[in-house]
């Protein structure tokens, strides 16, 4: 009930269909070394600025899809293009936020956000001050600037995930990948962070791929939905076309 209410408010303006394609999958598939198929050949297009939610039960292939997109798994057939370039390994163009916060405990909050920037070389290389300023700017986006010098263990679960998102955003990726980022949080924190993520999306215009097994969350956050089942697409389309019942029926 609440989620439908919020959803109407949160529904973003539709992204024009002719906007640039950021991510393109052509017949991409993946098989485990055992030979079991994790992901059947999949076609998928994500346009710049889209917010796509990928849902599905465990074993549906959604984690496999995410690992392929993050560059941690190598697809065995088809083609995967990010901004027109073949995606073959982890890259700053697509950054991943994991389920568990995975922040570096030996760095401060700010230091964590600066981490990725230290690996930017060449023309885009930032010096120490620039890195710090950039990190502060991103930290401000998630509303944690006063926590800049804190240690990771001093933060709450929700704050840690905010920092994780900020850390991934600091590199200004083409595609932000989120792997059930709020699933370890309590319901009210989860809802709050969901709202903040939408806000962040509107502010930054980032292309977001959000994996979750929580259908409510997917319907609430996503602009597009991709439902996977046993490695195949079960449902795909703009969120407003589907109700919770549709998704539940399809995934049962």
């Amino acid at each position: 009930m609440i989620s439908t209410l919020l959803r109407s408010e949160a529904m973003p303006q539709a992204i024009p269909r002719n906007s640039e394609i950021i991510l393109e999958l052509k017949q991409v598939s993946y098989r485990y070394p055992s030979g079991k198929v994790a992901l059947e050949p999949l076609d998928l297009c994500i346009h710049r600025g889209e917010f796509l939610c990928v849902v599905g039960p465990s074993g549906s292939g959604k984690s496999t899809l995410l690992s392929l997109l993050a560059g941690f798994l190598k697809y065995q057939s088809g083609e995967l293009l990010l901004s027109g370039q073949r995606l073959t390994h982890p890259n700053m163009g697509q950054t991943l936020v994991q389920q568990e916060h995975a922040l570096f405990p030996w760095r401060t909050v700010l230091g964590n956000i600066e981490f990725g920037l230290e690996f930017v070389w060449g023309k885009k290389r930032l010096n120490k001050t620039e890195r710090k300023n950039k990190a502060l700017e991103v930290l401000r986006l998630v509303g944690l600037e006063e926590f800049a010098q804190r240690r990771v263990h001093e933060l709450s679960g929700g704050q840690r995930q905010r920092v994780s998102i900020a850390r991934a955003l600091a590199l200004d990726p083409e595609l932000l990948l989120l792997d059930e980022p709020f699933s370890a949080l309590d319901v009210s924190t989860r809802n709050k962070l969901g709202e903040e993520l939408l806000e962040l999306w509107r502010k930054t215009g980032k292309t977001i791929l959000f994996v979750t097994h929580n259908l409510d969350e997917a319907l609430h956050l996503g602009q597009q939905i991709l439902a996977l089942k046993e490695g195949k697409v079960a449902l795909e389309g703009p969120t407003e076309q589907f109700t919770l019942q549709d998704l539940q029926a399809m995934l049962e």
Binding site: A70, G71, F72, P90, N91, M92, Q94, T95, L96, Q98, A102, L103, F104, F115, G116, F119, V120, R167, A168, L171
Partner: peptide
Amino acid sequence: IAGRTLGAK
């Protein structure tokens, strides 16, 4: 994974 996704190798 966090390190690698943020560009460390």
